[in-house]
Design a protein around this nucleic acid. Sequence first.
DNA 1: CCTACCGATCGGTAGG
DNA 2: CCTACCGATCGGTAGG
Lengths: 199, 199
Amino acid sequence: MTNTKPEEQTLSKREFILEEAAKLFVVKGFKATSMKDIAAVIGVEAASLYNHIKNKQEILVVLLGGLADSFSIGIHEIVIKKASSRDKLEEAIRMHIQVSLENRNKTHLILEDWKHLEEPELTRYLMLRKEYQDLFKGLVIDAINSGAIKKGNPELILNHILSSVRSIYNQYLYSNTSKISAQEYEESIIDFIFQGISG
Amino acid sequence: MTNTKPEEQTLSKREFILEEAAKLFVVKGFKATSMKDIAAVIGVEAASLYNHIKNKQEILVVLLGGLADSFSIGIHEIVIKKASSRDKLEEAIRMHIQVSLENRNKTHLILEDWKHLEEPELTRYLMLRKEYQDLFKGLVIDAINSGAIKKGNPELILNHILSSVRSIYNQYLYSNTSKISAQEYEESIIDFIFQGISG
DNA sequence: CCTACCGATCGGTAGG
DNA sequence: CCTACCGATCGGTAGG
């Protein structure tokens, strides 16, 4: 009866903390970012953060967990689709690019900071990653067998694809060509992967 | 007159420490690796390390400095060569792959741990990196202008090339296909970059 | 190369 | 949300 006020908050304090922490992790790394660093950005004392989050580890778990879910859902949706193996592979790559671009700060954690996950989350994370890569590799193998892409070691091909997308993390951070739109960037990466840089 | 014993040492204690530290940095990252961790691998107490190295920071400086020099020398040698722009670009990519493969532990520092360099080494490192990328980008631009590779944003192309080589760090660490020789791996990456994965 | 030790900083808690 | 505070760990030094 008393709660007639509509939900008007756009970002809870907790979400704000998680977001700002992710940004700091990109710049300094998880280990080198102290709770005091995070608190300073939020504008409170370090001890106050613990009213919104359990501990530093939880921040990492939540950020990486949400991301792993996005990738996992994305690949599962594509695998079950009825389409040519070439189209499915391309769609998977585009999905991977889009999720990376939409979660740039989080995605950076995939490079090195995942190592600081503690058990049991570390094992869970590695299992999800393995599953993702296996499903992705399946799409690569199907594309090879159908003649859509040339023959080769599927693991090397997958590794090349995922590394190519990883160019996103450098690009947006250290370069000044960030004027480019997400759509243009996606097309550029797709072209590099499938056609290479030759004329 | 007394020093008749030949130089028989293959690896000085200092070099041993630097090498083992580099390996630990790959696994745990610079910040999460303590002097105690390094000492344990060497088989001494942490305090004893300071007889061979000045401090933890020096380890990072020496490792990254040596690597930066290797890359720098490599690109300068290629730039002054008399050859087609296509050949020079390919040679630069091969050099980058070879230096990366020969210094796998060190090269890993380029991903994230360089951030923990302190001034003035940080600025020096970033300047060397910038110079390297500018020279490399020059080769890309020449290759575009001569029609050897297709038109496109040189920064995006360079970024794609360097990211493609970065697949080395994943490959050798987490995969089980390491049976592949360095030569095969180099050819594979070159082919991916120039021709892409299409048939 | 070791023992002993230091100041600084860390993540986190208690209590209000 | 803050003040006050804690135990643990860090990089590093002294002295032998």
